[in-house]
Design a protein around this nucleic acid. Sequence first.
DNA 1: ATCCAACCCTGTAGTTTCTACAAGGACGGC
DNA 2: GCCGTCCTTGTAGAAACTACAGGGTTGGAT
Lengths: 130, 130
Amino acid sequence: MRIGELASATRVRAETIRFYEKQGLLPPPARTSANYRSYGTAHRQRLSFIRRARDLGFRLEDVRELLVLADDRSQPCGAVDRIATTHLAEIEAKIADLGKMRDELMRLLGSCSRGTVEDCHIIETLGPDR
Amino acid sequence: MRIGELASATRVRAETIRFYEKQGLLPPPARTSANYRSYGTAHRQRLSFIRRARDLGFRLEDVRELLVLADDRSQPCGAVDRIATTHLAEIEAKIADLGKMRDELMRLLGSCSRGTVEDCHIIETLGPDR
DNA sequence: ATCCAACCCTGTAGTTTCTACAAGGACGGC
DNA sequence: GCCGTCCTTGTAGAAACTACAGGGTTGGAT
């Protein structure tokens, strides 16, 4: 299959597929006589793997490691577990941060008096000094 | 005050202060005879404003607009409200996304059998095809 | 007077993960 | 032969900084 077909099969844009190839995440495929990339099932599976991992928020560096582990099926599962656990902790930290922002923003918006900026609680909270 | 003092007063790094100046968020200050930046109270207040807005997750473009609004105190408060409301919605969307990732990751990690990659549920879930 | 650490200057390049061209070649149908 | 769609490479941009490199300045100790 050509890059466009692979793109729609995996819902990964063609540009992104080329980008992954350049980053070494996806091996360079065979080429047709017209120099078009020609992909097979293994490529589609590998790209789907990458996409699922990205959907779970893993960074490309993590995806790279996970691919190595997936390729060597005799490895102990601990490394996978460690990567995923670390990632989970990062996600939870980010959720906590965003939750604080959300609470503070809701507090500010709730106190908006719909007047002029002069007595806007939001602007007032941001500056000048408290 | 010089840039280092401003930096520690606002907990914004000196490099970032220069960056904000280049972006037009902070007006260029006076210079000493040695060409050092020399800041006053107004600069510190403006930078604190920026920092608080950034802590709430506003993008620099939003901060730029908020600064304009804060400078013209007769403006109606609606524009501020609109920026903050939009931002709140983005934050809530991001929290929802991350929440889904967290749930899925926890599910995967809970099913980890601590064996080899061969029967690792995490790797299995990511690929090849389901 | 000299020395040194700690500060400051400018400008550029790197981070992350793509996305968007620009300029050109290939292919399939009419 | 032409048109629209696909493919190729390479480069630049987006966000918000961060990290140098290669210099000048300051202020205190010796």
